[in-house]
């Protein structure tokens, strides 16, 4: 909000500053390309699953930090968003293992 206060309609002549935006775009595109490469070349299941989940979090970081500007917010706001997400990440991992053990004991038909 404070960033708008000192701006007015008279400052139209400003040059667009889009370097950081396109930098993030190339990272996202690059990571997706790497994911495709792994999807077509690797047959190792555990390696694929772990790499894909890690790369997804890399992409998530760049989208949230740069596109959603969370990097430029105050620490309190950053932590109130990140901490709950950490619990979710744990729950995802926990229940994937849980699924494996359901399969081991009594498979769903």
């Amino acid at each position: 909000m404070s960033s708008h206060d000192h701006q007015s309609a008279t400052t139209v002549a400003q040059k667009p500053d889009t370097k950081a935006i396109w930098f993030t775009f190339w990272i996202l595109l690059g990571v997706t390309a790497v994911e495709f490469l792994i999807a077509f070349t690797s047959d190792s299941k555990p390696f694929r699953i772990i790499t894909f989940i890690l790369l997804t979090f890399v992409k998530a970081y760049f989208i949230v930090a740069n596109f959603m500007h969370l990097r430029h917010e105050v620490k309190t706001l950053i932590w109130s968003v990140v901490v709950p997400i950490a619990f979710i990440a744990w729950l995802v991992a926990a229940l994937i293992f849980e699924g494996g053990s359901i399969l081991g004991s009594h498979p769903i038909k």
Binding site: V92, L95, E98, G99, L103, P107, I108
Partner: peptide, 12 residues
């Protein structure tokens, strides 16, 4: 997505 993970890995 957690539901998906659970069900997917409880199938062979």
């Amino acid at each position: 997505l957690i539901t998906y993970g659970l069900i997917r890995f409880s199938h062979p």
